[in-house]
Simulated assay, not measured.
Amino acid sequence: MNIHAPSRHAGICLRDLRARQKVSQLDLALRVGVSQRHLSCIETGKASASKEMLLALLEGLDAPLSQRNETLVAAGFAPVFGHRPIDHREMSTINQVIDLLLMGPQAAPAIVLDSAWNLVKFNPGFVRLIELLEFDLTALQATPNVLLALAAPGGLGTRLLNPDEVLDDVLRRAQREALHIPALQAVLDALPANLRNTRQHHGPVSGPTLETRFSSSVGELRFISTFTTFGAPMDITAASLRIEHMFPADEQTWAAFS
């Protein structure tokens, strides 16, 4: 039995994470405060890293908690971060916060997404939006990935009045996040090639933030979005969640939700 195998395996995990993010050994070494030579030895398995060193390197790469656990286990250490399902009793506080965020302000559509952009929860305002867009909520719940729902034939993307700007922004964000999240990369790979590879170049926008504009049964609806995440998450599920509030950007849209 090769006693160095766990160290080599952990080193490969680190190297692959670093390569996906296009971070050089020197850059990561400087972030963490170790020599490039020592980092190279860790990645090749010639040197074993302590648990604290591995966590520092993973923090330097801003690695997802799930990949931090994976690397620790590969090195022979116990995982640090829990992975409780959203309905676990120890997630009750998380769910209470989510429910508070979803219900205030009650008129604005709001959704909860996980790290792969799957729809986890939504509020009555979002149900109202789906109704106004004349979209099948049941179909969305059956395949609850927002990226796939936007890209599907006859999907949510067909209700957009400014699809180039919105889809370009969405894809750019998703592709940045996919550097850390293999499950999200798998979703992106499933998108139509013409959409996945499109890069639009737009001039300056007229407002301070990009508006999402929909065609609906009551006319044009305009929204600006904000995102909320949990600070200092210590659980993989909690770290993956974000709440998007879609705030009406004009009086006509507010009236449709009042």
Rank of each mutant, 00 (worst) to 15 (best):
S217Y: 05
A183F: 07
V187P: 10
S35W: 00
G157K: 14
A178C: 04
L57W: 07
A56D: 11
K51S: 13
K51A: 07
V170S: 11
L137M: 13
F126E: 14
L241Q: 10
A178H: 08
D27S: 02
A29R: 09
E43N: 02
K121M: 12
H4C: 00
S215G: 12
L58Q: 12
A238Q: 15
H201R: 09
P233E: 13
A49Y: 06
F77Q: 01
D169N: 13
A183L: 08
V73G: 08
D235R: 14
A47N: 04
F77G: 04
S216M: 04
P248C: 07
G203C: 13
N145D: 03
G125H: 11
R8I: 01
A178W: 10
P79H: 05
T158E: 10
D235E: 09
N95F: 12
N145A: 01
G231W: 01
E59P: 01
R242Q: 15
F230Q: 13
H180K: 11
R37S: 13
V80N: 06
T71K: 07
C13Y: 01
E70K: 06
S24L: 05
T93E: 14
P144R: 13
L188S: 09
N95R: 13
A151L: 08
A149C: 06
G11Y: 00
H38W: 06
G33V: 05
M91K: 04
